[in-house]
């Protein structure tokens, strides 16, 4: 009968159990710290050299080219701008004369005969403020000229 067979007892395998591996396993050391630091320095100086020899001359070339085109065009832009400015000043003066014609004692360009500048004579030139050109126009119209920086 089966009950007559001796029971099989659980025992360690022949030769005993293998040892439990609890020792610290450090990662494989491919390069030393000094080599890494050296590589870092070499890369930094390499990048500096590339910037000095390649990138910077290219950027300078482009910058000079862009500036040259602007300088070559400036007289044409200034000529047009100056004519437009003088024309607008004349229109403003006419508009003010028309607006204040019913006010007694009003002189155009002055406050009841008192000039704005005492040290500049009447025919002397001074560069007006940008807003002065738009005195008698719609304030919303100024937005069109918000980016206009062509001044002396």
């Amino acid at each position: 009968m089966a009950s007559k067979m001796p029971p099989i007892q659980e025992l360690p395998p022949p030769g005993g159990y293998s040892k439990i591996n609890f020792a610290r396993v450090p990662a494989k050391k491919l390069v030393s710290g000094l080599t890494l630091f050296g590589a870092f320095v070499v890369m930094q100086f390499g990048a500096l050299w590339v910037r000095h020899k390649v990138t910077r001359p290219l950027l300078d070339y482009q910058k000079i080219e862009m500036r040259s085109a602007t300088i070559a065009l400036l007289p044409f832009l200034f000529a047009e701008r100056d004519r437009a400015a003088l024309l607008q000043m004349r229109r403003n003066r006419d508009a003010e004369a028309d607006l204040m014609k019913n006010v007694e004692g009003w002189e155009v360009g002055t406050y009841m005969g008192e000039p704005i500048y005492k040290t500049i004579d009447e025919d002397g030139w001074h560069e007006p403020k940008k807003f002065e050109y738009f005195e008698h126009s719609d304030p919303m119209y100024l937005r069109t000229f918000a980016d206009c920086h062509l001044r002396r």
Binding site: L87, R90, R93, D123
Partner: peptide, 27 residues
């Protein structure tokens, strides 16, 4: 802001044919 004594060129003197081109063409 300019008085009557301030000499300004007339409108005819200031009106000439302008260069009617945009920025890319000018550049």
């Amino acid at each position: 802001m300019r008085t009557k004594g301030f000499n300004l060129p007339t409108e005819e003197e200031l009106t000439v044919e302008e260069i009617n081109l945009s920025t890319p063409s000018l550049r």
